[in-house]
Design a protein around this nucleic acid. Structure first.
Length: 353
DNA sequence: TAGCCGTGGTT
DNA sequence: TAACCAAGGCT
């Protein structure tokens, strides 16, 4: 390691010793590594997700399933419902697959980056993070925080995503052999609290003396990113069908949008286009209001259609289930449908059922 | 490789 | 308000 890199790593670790955030899944700086199960669970939950959003889910999961064996033994539907609201539901499917793979092979997580990388749901980032944080292995841990810190530190001009190769090489250069987990978490804390996307607090930064972007007076210019395409707007309908204080819910296909989650029946809207307007039965339907919901690649206006006859002619039993209205919270609806269900319940309140 | 996949907070 | 974006992975 060259002198500048050693300087950077030393300053950063000293800063972390004083300013590390206290988080439920984290051990204090310099202390023994935490339970790999908790490290892994937190890292998966934190993929593209803020610390604030994760905290309650982490507490819920670790209370309900204290070990990886407990999680491996859980029912699919239980875990999907517990994940409801956190988003990116493929993570929950992979979480279960990973827990079961680990349980099958003796109940312990592998302690090397290469072996971790083979588990479902662990990509380059997560495998490196778990290897470093849970097992003290030197690994090059690069998430969006690290990308930002490193791009500024070295004033890397190459726009993302292509510039990742150069950023990764630079991160490798400054990563020390010792305290690998602390170093990775220090970089992420720095990115989250000091080297922020907008309005970085360079005057508080332990690396400002080494930072090329700061010296040039334009740290916020980095990392350079390719422009993003505009999000299309889509229209869709969801259907609120109630009988005997129960509402008709379906389970979405295992893959794709909101895959594997319980949902209200809908008319087939997607990122590619509007829905057909057609529901699972013929109607008649009454307008029940609309909600707007933003997904990664499009914005959806979801209009709720209320079934307005007292008797449902027929619904195929294997296509869904009648779910008690007073236990709707337990259904684990993703946020889009939870919003729509609120509309449905409100409409019933207005008509006094 | 680039498109797909949620959600909620910030500006 | 609308755009941006956060401890990414999969195909």
């Amino acid at each position: 390691m060259d002198a500048r890199s050693e300087h950077v790593a030393g300053h950063l670790l000293a800063w972390y010793d004083r300013h590390a955030r206290t988080l439920p899944w984290r051990a204090p700086p310099g202390s023994p590594a935490p339970d790999p199960y908790r490290v892994w669970l937190s890292e998966v939950m934190l993929q593209q997700t803020t610390v604030a959003a994760v905290k309650d889910y982490f507490a819920k999961f670790t209370t309900r399933w204290p070990t990886v064996a407990d999680l491996a033994a859980a029912e699919d539907a239980e875990v999907m419902a517990a994940w409801a609201g956190l988003g990116y539901y493929a993570r929950a499917r992979n979480l279960l697959a990973c827990a079961r793979a680990v349980a099958e092979s003796g109940g312990s997580f592998p302690d090397s980056e290469d072996e971790l990388r083979k588990l479902p749901g662990l990509g380059a980032y997560t495998a490196a993070a778990v290897a470093a944080i849970a097992f003290g292995r030197r690994a090059v841990v690069v998430d969006a925080n690290v990308e930002r810190v490193v791009a500024r530190l070295f004033a890397i001009d190459a726009p993302l995503p292509g510039g990742r190769t150069e950023i990764r090489a630079a991160t490798d250069r400054i990563t020390p052999d010792a305290r690998a987990g602390d170093f990775a978490q220090a970089m992420m804390d720095l990115g989250a609290t000091v080297c922020t996307t907008r309005n970085p607090r360079c005057l508080l930064c332990p690396l400002s003396g080494d930072c090329t972007g700061y010296r040039a007076g334009e740290p916020e210019r980095f990392p350079v990113k390719a422009p993003k395409a505009a999000k299309p707007h889509r229209q869709g309908r969801a259907f609120w069908i109630v009988r005997n204080e129960k509402v008709w819910l379906v389970q979405r296909p295992g893959k794709g949008m909101l895959g594997g989650m319980r949902a209200l029946p809908d008319d087939g809207w997607s990122a590619r286009g509007d829905g057909s307007g057609e529901g699972p039965i013929a109607g008649p339907w009454t307008p029940g209001g609309a909600v707007q919901h933003g997904f990664t690649h499009f914005t959806l206006d979801l209009h709720l259609a209320l079934y307005s006859r007292s008797e449902v002619v027929s619904l195929p039993p294997d296509a869904g289930e009648w779910w008690p209205l007073d236990r709707l919270e337990e259904a684990g609806l993703p946020t889009l449908f939870a919003k729509a269900a609120r509309l449905g319940l409100a409409a019933m309140g207005e008509t006094d059922r």
